[in-house]
């Protein structure tokens, strides 16, 4: 464990808490992409299948359980409790355009052709593009609530911090996982224009609006 990975995990946890707070406090999931949240739940489900079989540490197990529970909790709030506030008209990104190629790629490019490893690879690839429906939704509505932009900033920062973690582990532990690194870089790059807007607007106290 290193400081980059720890702060990355904390940023990830913070993002999930911010989203749950937004939906719970505003009693609305307006501006939040249900498709991205469904894909995140799928990412955690396919990545943490070894939760029972492969104990790494109390921290690892606890965080995995929190991530799985909170992702399904978010789906519950979005599609059951506050379903009436789900903005399906703007959440129109075709998930199959992401899931199908990612599934195909995870069969072609992986470390080991075993069910658990392919599912892990699928979850790594899927996570790298899972935010696209959310970013697409913001581009369609042209704006995002401030707390939703904080959620996205924390979520984007987590994988950027993981990249620093991989640099650290490469030099100090000889650890290198090409699949995770490449997918992590793609994932972080997808946030770049959002990061620019967030830093130039939200940090100046303005609302996050996209140039028309």
């Amino acid at each position: 464990m290193n400081v980059f990975r720890l702060t990355g995990d904390i940023a990830h946890l913070l993002a999930i808490i911010l989203l749950l707070m937004k939906i719970w406090k505003t009693r609305s999931c307006a501006g939040v992409s249900g498709k991205s949240q469904m894909m995140f739940a799928l990412v955690f489900t396919t990545r943490y299948l070894d939760l029972i079989t492969n104990f790494i540490s109390l921290y690892n197990t606890t965080m995995k359980m929190i991530f799985i529970a909170s992702s399904y909790g978010t789906l519950y709030l979005m599609f059951l409790k506050f379903r009436a506030t789900y903005d399906s008209n703007h959440d129109t990104f075709r998930m199959e355009f992401l899931v199908v190629p990612v599934a195909g790629l995870s069969f072609l490019v992986n470390h080991d052709f075993s069910p658990l490893e392919i599912l892990w690879t699928f979850s790594i690839y899927l996570e790298s593009v899972a935010i696209l429906p959310q970013l697409f939704m913001i581009s369609k509505t042209g704006e995002a609530e401030t707390i939703t932009s904080h959620y996205l900033f924390a979520l984007g920062s987590y994988r950027a911090l993981y990249i620093l973690n991989w640099v650290y582990r490469f030099y100090f532990e000889g650890f290198f996982d090409l699949i995770a690194v490449v997918a992590g870089c793609v994932q972080t790059v997808l946030y770049c224009d959002f990061f620019y807007l967030y830093i130039t607007k939200v940090w100046k106290g303005k609302k996050l609006t996209l140039p028309a």
Partner: peptide, 10 residues
């Protein structure tokens, strides 16, 4: 290069 026998990252 070791690192992906067991995935120890979240």
């Amino acid at each position: 290069c070791k690192g992906h026998e067991t995935h120890d990252e979240l």
